[in-house]
């Protein structure tokens, strides 16, 4: 149990948790406490200092929505967002319960009657918005990977393909999501005309914008990895006269996996970062729309609520990164080379 927990923490790059586990399992307290002091105490002190400076300076700045909220107000809003979510869920449950009773009664009276099942139309809660954002970024990430991986491998294998792709990559890489969005919006609106489709239009627009911004890191890292495979490996493949397919799948790709995953990890990070902007403008009902709505709303709680969103984005981004680190370690032959 203990060794498994330590392994998991190490694997996900959260080594700071290890001394806690050792301490609770009764290993000599002195060394563990010292390590905790180093790995947890110092960052904790920094956080406390940050919160203190924040609360002091925030109250000094008066905006049209009142004073800039400090940590306490933000924590209160986080709590109230959760309560709203719970209440909304209760309302929805009550709605469905009423509907079921009504339908049952109707059917009891006349078994041939058609019953309608109506979806609850309450507004999405903060929790729903987080889920939507995660779905969107995941969709965008999958699209980006499906485009970037094959092109990256191709560019790495063939100098000509690299020459062809290089200017396109160089030009499009630095473009902001805000610039892509109007174009994507127009194109998706023209192409994806059916509104009864499986996906909301705003969802697709946000996802595609995310992929357009995030695919470059995967593409560049993959092509770099493929083109810089150890020369000795390639020589062995030549001596053995491996077929191009065998060479690619048995040697080049396994040798490139660490860099591919570095690329994927950066891509996911970039995707999550640009998502908020994309959702804001595309009105995809995720965290971006939440921020925008709160900004437009302009209530006295709005700033604090937006700050809750800021922290949510940051913390989720952190965990997404940890997941990618764990994946990277799982597939890489050289475990030590993965930088957490």
């Amino acid at each position: 149990m203990k060794t498994i927990a330590i392994k998991v923490l190490t694997f996900t790059g959260m080594r700071w948790g290890v001394p806690f586990i050792k301490l609770f399992s009764g290993e000599e307290a002195k060394t563990q406490l010292k390590e905790i002091g180093q790995t947890v105490g110092i960052p904790l002190a920094a956080i406390v200092t940050f919160l203190f400076l924040w609360s002091v300076t925030a109250s000094q700045i008066e905006t049209s929505l009142g004073a800039v909220p400090g940590p306490i107000q933000v924590a209160e809003q986080a709590k109230s967002l959760w309560i709203e979510h719970v209440e909304e869920r209760a309302k929805a449950d009550a709605f469905y319960e009423r509907q079921e009773i009504r339908n049952a009664a109707k059917l009891a009276k006349n078994p041939a009657a058609t019953v309608k099942i109506i979806d609850y139309t309450g507004k999405p809660t903060y929790w729903d918005q987080i889920i939507t954002s995660l779905k969107t970024v995941f969709m965008g990430f999958v699209i980006a990977s499906l485009i970037a991986l094959p092109i990256g491998v191709l560019c790495g294998l063939s100098k000509n393909a690299m020459q062809a792709m290089s200017p396109i990559i160089q030009v499009f890489k630095p473009v902001s999501p805000l610039a892509w969005l109007p174009i994507v919006t127009m194109i998706v609106s023209a192409v994806y005309v059916t509104n009864d489709g499986f996906f909301e239009k705003s969802f697709i627009i946000s996802a595609i914008t995310v992929s357009l911004c995030s695919l470059w890191a995967t593409l560049i890292n993959t092509s770099l990895g493929v083109s810089s495979v150890n020369k000795d490996y390639i020589n062995v493949a030549r001596v053995l006269q491996l077929s191009p397919m065998k060479k690619t799948f048995k040697i080049v790709l396994p040798a490139t996996l660490p860099l591919i995953f570095t690329g994927l990890r950066i891509s996911l990070g970039v995707g999550w970062m640009v998502l908020i902007a994309a959702e804001m403008l595309a009105q995809n009902p995720g965290l971006g729309k939440f921020v925008w709505d709160e900004f437009q709303n302009g209530s006295s709680n709005s700033l604090a609520r937006i700050m809750v969103a800021v922290f949510t984005v940051g913390i989720i981004g952190f965990f997404l990164d940890r997941i990618m680190v764990a994946l990277q370690k799982a597939v890489s032959f050289d475990k030590g080379a993965v930088v957490a």
Binding site: D232, Y233, L240, Q241, I251, P254, A255
Partner: peptide, 26 residues
Amino acid sequence: PGPDRGVVFQSPSLFPWMTALENVLL
């Protein structure tokens, strides 16, 4: 190049993601 000339390189040049057996088997 061809497998009628077996080469042992200065660095072992094994594929680290394969087992010893898989390296020879290739």
